[in-house]
Amino acid sequence: MFELEGLFRSVFRMMKSDIRTIFGEFISNGEFRVLQLIRENGALKSSEISKRMEVSASHITSITDTLVEKGYITRQRSNEDRRVVELAVTPEGVEVLAQCEEKKSHYFQQLFQTFEKEEIEHLIELFEKLMSSSVRKS
């Protein structure tokens, strides 16, 4: 089991580092995920993003401040409740997200190019099995 744990750590650390390098000229991994969440769900409150990403509100504030500075998201008052501030993706944010998604997709295609189709399908099955047997169960 220790060998398996070590391999998991090494593989995911490598992938995270590679993706950080790929996104480096654009955004961080956290900024990427926040942009994805907002694009997929429409305007969101910071507290919603924090909950979905399972990180602190202060962490999301830091990320969203950076995204606002870069012009990738805006803060706007809710039409239903003016006290509520919602975050929305700008056209520039949509564009940078599309570029990053394309680069990330290319990275994974390259990473798994030596795998046979059946090996990838088996790997997916194993990860799904691992997720369904998770001790944590969110």
Rank of each mutant, 00 (worst) to 15 (best):
K129S: 10
P91I: 10
E128F: 00
S50D: 05
I73N: 02
F32G: 03
I38A: 02
E116I: 00
K103V: 01
S133P: 00
C100K: 03
S133G: 10
E86N: 14
D81N: 14
E3G: 01
R52A: 10
K117M: 13
L44A: 13
E101H: 13
V11R: 07
N79E: 07
E128N: 00
I63Y: 03
F32K: 01
F108W: 14
K129I: 00
T61N: 04
E128D: 03
V34S: 03
I38F: 02
S28Q: 07
M1D: 13
R39T: 14
F115E: 03
V89M: 06
I124V: 14
S10M: 10
E102M: 07
T114D: 15
V11M: 01
E101M: 13
M53D: 05
L35Y: 09
N41K: 15
R77H: 14
A98T: 15
G24S: 08
R9I: 11
E69W: 00
H122L: 11
E102N: 10
T90K: 09
L87A: 03
V96H: 06
P91K: 15
A88G: 05
E5T: 11
F32D: 02
M14I: 08
F108T: 15
E92Y: 06
E5H: 11
L111R: 12
E92I: 06
E125I: 12
E25I: 09
S47N: 03
F8Q: 09
K103M: 13
K104C: 07
M53T: 05
N41M: 10
K104I: 06
M1F: 00
M53S: 09
Q109M: 10
D65R: 11
I60Q: 02
E40R: 14
A88H: 09
G93W: 02
I73V: 13
I120Y: 08
T61S: 10
A88Q: 12
Q109Y: 07
V89L: 12
F108M: 12
T64K: 04
A88I: 12
T64D: 04
H106C: 04
S17V: 04
D81M: 08
V89K: 02
G30S: 14
V85E: 10
E25T: 10
R39Q: 15
K137F: 00
E118R: 04
L35I: 11
S56A: 15
K51E: 15
E101C: 13
M15L: 13
R77C: 13
Y72P: 05
K137S: 07
L126V: 09
Q113F: 12
V84S: 05
S62W: 01
G30C: 08
S105R: 15
T21M: 04
V85L: 12
V34L: 09
F8P: 00
I22E: 00
L126T: 11
